[in-house]
């Protein structure tokens, strides 16, 4: 570094006033054709990046990110699974020699040795030769590690029925409907047999589906109340036409409030 009196600076700063030429680092000891990064190589990189991005966007458009139902700690029998890149650890911890009393081996010692070895690889494999043939031990340990990770991941994923999991756990927006119990229609609903099967807040029951989240019109509901539908027998409604109208309007209003 240049030091001492006689140096010229820009103003009172520490920036030297002498302009230095912009000389890139020299790669001439490497054989062959070096290329300037700017702009030649960057343009090519840009093209490759664009192709990569298009492929990636096609993936995201073709496969929307999955979402299951809202977390519910009371869900019975849910089998937890981590993301795919943790499957190998998840599988490893299932083996007898790595779980229960041997948990410390499975969760700490074995992964600690593997990842510690990876972290310290430059010091464990510290001779100058870089070629694969010059470092048989390091390379075979790495191949062994890779084979184990692939195999464990395969073992963990093989038994999982991914499609079934997705089907059983589709996201459903929990609808919150408002039941206006002062509505004249609610009284009709109570006084007829509807409430016995469809529930106090239209939530459904063992014998009948919920009456929320349906898209029947007033006239259709009037017809169903009188003539039945599917497993629902006809003649459930007994009352005046006016009451029938109030009942149907009440059910439609509840459904609209949930949207």
């Amino acid at each position: 570094m240049h030091k001492g009196k006689g140096m010229k600076f820009v103003g009172d700063s520490r920036i030297t006033a002498e302009r230095k030429p912009n000389i890139p680092k020299d790669y001439s000891e490497y054989p062959g054709r070096t290329e300037a990064f700017w702009p030649n190589f960057l343009l090519k990189e840009w093209l490759v990046g664009a192709v990569f991005l298009v492929g990636f966007l096609c993936l995201t458009a073709a496969h929307p990110a999955p979402l299951e139902g809202i977390a519910d700690p009371t869900t019975a029998g849910y089998i937890p699974l981590p993301d795919w890149y943790f499957l190998f650890l998840y599988q490893f911890l299932k083996y007898e020699f790595a779980s229960g009393p041997y948990f410390v081996i499975g969760a700490i010692i074995a992964p600690g040795l593997a990842f510690g070895g990876l972290l310290l690889a430059p010091f464990l494999d510290n001779r100058p030769g870089r070629k694969v043939s010059q470092r048989p031990i390091a390379v075979s340990l790495m191949l062994l590690g890779m084979a184990s990770v692939f195999w464990l991941t395969y073992e963990a994923a093989e038994h999982v029925d991914w499609e079934q999991r997705a089907e059983e756990n589709t996201p459903e927006l929990p609808t919150e409907v408002e039941i206006d119990e002062d509505h004249p229609g609610y009284e009709v609903y109570q006084n007829n047999s509807c409430i016995q099967c469809h529930g106090e807040s239209l939530e459904g029951g063992a014998a009948a589906p919920p009456l929320t989240d349906i898209d029947h019109t007033v006239d259709e509901i009037k017809d169903i109340a009188q003539n039945g539908i599917g497993d629902m027998p006809p003649g459930q409604f007994e009352g005046t036409d006016e009451e029938l109208q109030q009942l149907a309007e009440f059910i439609v209003e509840v459904n609209e409030s949930g949207e």
């Binding site: 912009n22 890139p24 680092k25 020299d26 790669y27 490497y30 054989p31 062959g32 054709r33 070096t34 290329e35 300037a36 990064f37 700017w38 190589f41 960057l42």
Partner: peptide
Amino acid sequence: ADHEVPEH
């Protein structure tokens, strides 16, 4: 930006 990209 202004560096070289070696052939290899």
